[in-house]
């Protein structure tokens, strides 16, 4: 009696509906991120469109007075842009050199033990909520500034700028550290073997070789400083002021958005729409900077791989 081979089927036994449903479910989850972007762009552009039907774009972009909540109303965004610029300059003066120097210390000088100590401290600094930095600005930095320079106003751009700088410093340090450490040790060896000092190796070989990464870090830091809200709302004031004097009270784009939302502004009014117009400018600026930074980073990743 010969044994018959058991039937072997290589076609699908059942259609596995679960697998299909799950695949679509997971895709939907991933698509939510795209929907979010669409929502951001959609909401901002629709409301901004209504806004521009009542306020000419040229008045908005080149006007020098921003008084949408007071009579006579005026919708020139330049004072807010100046305010934001002052904060960015202050933050850049603090965060870029200090962040780069920290990164150089960590990457070129510190031993492993020091690194293991300093890196978590930077992470803690990066994890502190922005509201805490705002508090720090009001209760420590501003009083100190006013002791040093008595003409400083209670609300001023300098204090907020310094604190925003402290806030983005850990990010600058950590991204620059990554960029410096991506430089192969062979280059350092080559330079040292020629009788260079550590400064010469760092400043003339390692930093130039990682310049694009460092630059990307700087761009991201500026983007973050533009979008920073709480510290500038608390410390920089609420007076749209076309000035470059950091000791005066100013208003940034973000602080204006907060100011409007704190008052009970009815939807559909022109003042409500200013929120979206300013938000659109803010979003466009940070988006462009982030795209630039990502493009630079993608390019420098290719260099050493």
């Amino acid at each position: 009696m010969s044994q018959t081979a058991p039937e072997i089927r290589l076609t699908r036994a059942r259609s596995r509906p679960l697998e299909k449903v799950l695949r679509w479910l997971f895709f939907a989850c991933a698509a939510i991120s795209v929907l979010t972007t669409l929502a951001v762009v959609g909401v901002l552009s629709v409301e901004t469109f209504y806004f521009f039907q009542q306020v000419p774009a040229s008045d908005f972009l080149f006007g020098t007075r921003w008084t949408p909540l007071l009579e006579p109303k005026s919708y020139g965004i330049l004072p807010l842009l100046f305010g934001t610029t002052l904060i960015v300059i202050g933050a850049a003066i603090v965060a870029l050199p200090v962040g780069l120097a920290c990164a150089i210390y960590l990457s070129e000088y510190a031993g492993n033990r020091t690194r293991d100590l300093v890196k978590p401290i930077l992470e803690i600094l990066a994890g502190i909520p922005t509201i805490v930095y705002g508090f720090f600005a009001i209760t420590f930095v501003t009083p100190s500034l006013r002791t040093l320079i008595p003409s400083t106003e209670v609300f001023n751009a300098a204090s907020a700028g310094i604190v925003v700088g402290i806030m983005v410093l850990p990010m600058v340090a950590s991204l620059c550290d990554d960029a410096l450490r991506a430089v192969p040790n062979a280059l350092r060896d080559g330079a040292y073997s020629l009788g260079a000092t550590s400064f010469e190796v760092t400043a003339r070989i390692v930093v130039p070789a990682s310049l694009s990464g460092i630059f990307a870090a700087f761009v991201l830091a500026i983007s973050r400083a533009i979008g920073e809200t709480m510290a500038v709302t608390l410390a920089a004031g609420a007076t749209p002021n076309l000035t470059l004097n950091p000791l005066e009270s100013i208003q940034t784009m973000t602080a204006y958005i907060v100011q409007v939302s704190l008052g009970d502004t009815p939807a559909g009014t022109l003042s409500y729409q200013t929120l979206f117009a300013v938000g659109a400018v803010l979003f466009a600026m940070t988006l462009v900077l982030n795209l630039i930074a990502n493009a630079i980073m993608n390019r420098y990743r290719d260099v050493y791989e």
């Binding site: 062979a186 280059l187 060896d189 080559g190 330079a191 073997s193 020629l194 009788g195 070989i205 130039p208």
Partner: peptide, 12 residues
């Protein structure tokens, strides 16, 4: 002076 296993010219 020293010459290394892999050529390591500076990116200059």
């Amino acid at each position: 002076g020293m010459v290394f296993q892999k050529p390591n010219p500076f990116p200059k």
